[in-house]
Design a binder for these strands. Structure first.
Lengths: 357, 357
DNA sequence: CTGTTAGCGCCTTCAA
DNA sequence: TTGAAGGCGCTAACAG
């Protein structure tokens, strides 16, 4: 028995099968495409046998070349490290499977330049469509795709100047839900932590909705004055996770607030799981295992460790987001011409110990 | 301005470029393949211009069809939910990028049947090679691939009857390292928790190495008798994560041991992160937030939450595993014929509060 | 019902 | 240095 991986005997082609079955390529092709009604049972049987004997499998690339569609779609991901991404991917995989599509997954690892290259590469493979969940997506970045008539569906963010379907969380509602929950739980000093949001629509929306929710409550003079301030107070803390040193610098502001709060427990609203994790790790390092007695953390996204550490979250319907994105894309590929659609799915508040004391 | 995503103008082909440049297709092809030495600077300039004007990009599928290699490789993954998988994937992506390969990622979501289908599908796209990290891989499952001469590299597990390169953690050493660490930290009653391991070589190895390490220590009669037993005691707990009810049933055995241990702190050695998470969640539900005072958890794999909860781990060199796998595969694709290789990479012990009190 | 004939977009002899 | 011709594996008219 050899210990060298053996090398291949060339694969059977449609021509081989035709010869083996004693017929023409056309009939084989018909068989492959399920046009059974135009094949005599006898021929059909011969073809079946020949295929089995040769262990024949049609070459998708050749088919694609001929018919102009290869059933490949591209999926561009900014960050596989984010559990959100992986969950969306599951929905994508499932939908692709159901619709007979094959996703080409590209992971840009948070590098804008890499996103550009991948998009261009996908174009080269003639994918029939693209699902994009990336950072640096602007109209220009997507030009190689959209400009060539390849339909695109955006996940979790809009791109201005670009007309395309989008599917994602209802960010406004989610941020509002979280903020209200904190307010209703008695927290009146809330810090909203978010990554730099100039470029990313979903982050913008979350932050804006947070501020509005705070202001709405601050306006209501129904609550008594507290610590000299009427109503609730909100702060926005920007954390650039790409730069550890910068994070350290930004976060001191928060540390000071926590120290100053003394006995009162501050609330921290993380715009997504990576931010929440960053905060939790920092707080744990600074205040020890018992950090949650100093601060109430709430996060959009529902990572594994939220349950384990008792952190309240707003879970996104990630699987469905991925699934819907593929469905939209599939429709476009099939030629649907309706106006661009926005599909906003609701988040679900999962209350845990961090906010329910 | 339209709100309907626009549809495509047909893409330029090599023929279009040839016409635009006023030359033949051959020259364009030569240009594309970098055969600059056989092109007059003048022609070359014209071609460049034509390509730019038409925004031409060669069709990879057509190239692939012609030359018999499309630069696609398949990557079959059992479970993207496992952080290990995602990390390996990062290494794979990076290596592919460096080597000019494009990975087709297939996620089988722990379903053996789906693994089979994906493997067959990959075959159909004529991938040049396959990297496999799956559950149900047996020689038979891989036949459509290997039988057709498509090189395969296994990640994290061997398949008997199959001669192929493999890369993964040095499981024996890792399990030994973990066990020794627990023993040296003063734990003499250790439970090794692992998913069903009949089919999966890496799990088998970890379990076996655990038992051996225990026995080696139990044999050494150097330590005084404790609780009536000489030396260390080890137990293996099988957790079938695919079946919640079954997990509940298996885990009562552990619960009893913990209850019985009373003041003494048991040690729990999880064979991987999913198992560790399952245990941690269970223990937290049963013993409350302070569950770590009852039990010392140690896990192979180093998920996010380990740092957050202070759990000691053995980190796998995941990125490198993925990277190496692609390198091996690439060599095979290029025709290397050496004997099948096993690449075992060492794990790194990361001591945290759970075992250092 | 079945086979023949053209290509899909590209690369690769082979001549010029 | 350049181009024409043929073919990769498959499908899609168009005849029989």
């Amino acid at each position: 028995m050899s210990t060298t991986p053996q090398t291949a005997p060339r694969r059977a082609t449609i021509t081989d099968v035709a010869r083996e079955a004693g017929t023409g390529k056309t009939s084989i092709s018909r068989y492959l495409n399920g046009e059974m009604s135009v094949l005599s049972p006898e021929l059909r049987a011969r073809i079946e046998a020949a295929i089995a004997r040769l262990d024949y499998q049609p070459n998708q690339m050749a088919r694609g070349l001929k018919r102009g569609r290869n059933r490949l779609i591209g999926m561009l991901l900014a960050d596989l490290t984010n559990p959100y991404t992986v969950e969306v991917l599951q929905g994508v995989e499932a939908a692709c499977h159901a619709l007979g599509l094959m996703p080409l997954i590209c992971h840009a690892a948070n590098e804008v330049e890499m996103e550009r290259r991948y998009l261009q590469l996908l174009t080269t493979y003639r994918v029939e469509g693209v699902i994009v969940n990336a950072l640096g997506v602007r109209e220009a970045t997507l030009r190689p795709v959209v400009g060539n008539g390849i339909p695109a569906v955006l996940v979790d963010r809009l791109v201005d100047g670009l007309v395309a379907d989008m599917v994602g969380l209802d960010n406004r509602a989610a941020a509002e839900l979280g903020t209200r929950h904190l307010l209703d739980s008695g927290f009146d000093d809330i810090w909203f932590a978010v990554q730099p949001f100039e470029q990313v629509s979903s982050r913008q929306l979350r932050e804006a909705a947070f501020r509005e929710a705070i202001n709405a409550r601050a306006g209501q003079a129904t609550r008594g004055a507290q610590g000299g301030h009427g109503g609730a107070r909100g702060h926005t803390l920007v954390l650039n996770l790409a730069d550890t040193a910068e994070v350290e610098r930004s976060i001191v502001e928060l540390d000071r607030a926590i120290d100053a709060a003394a006995s009162r427990r501050l609330a921290l609203f993380a715009a997504n799981a990576p931010v929440a994790l960053c905060l939790a790790l920092h707080l744990k390092a600074r205040y020890g295992a018992d950090w949650q007695s100093r601060v109430a953390l709430l996060s959009i996204d529902d990572p594994d460790w939220a349950e384990l550490t008792g952190v309240t979250t707003i879970r996104q319907p990630t699987y469905e987001i991925g699934y819907r994105a593929v469905e939209f894309l599939h429709e476009r590929i099939e030629g649907v011409q309706t106006a661009a659609r926005d599909c906003l799915l609701p988040g679900e508040l999962i209350v845990r110990a961090s906010t329910s004391r």
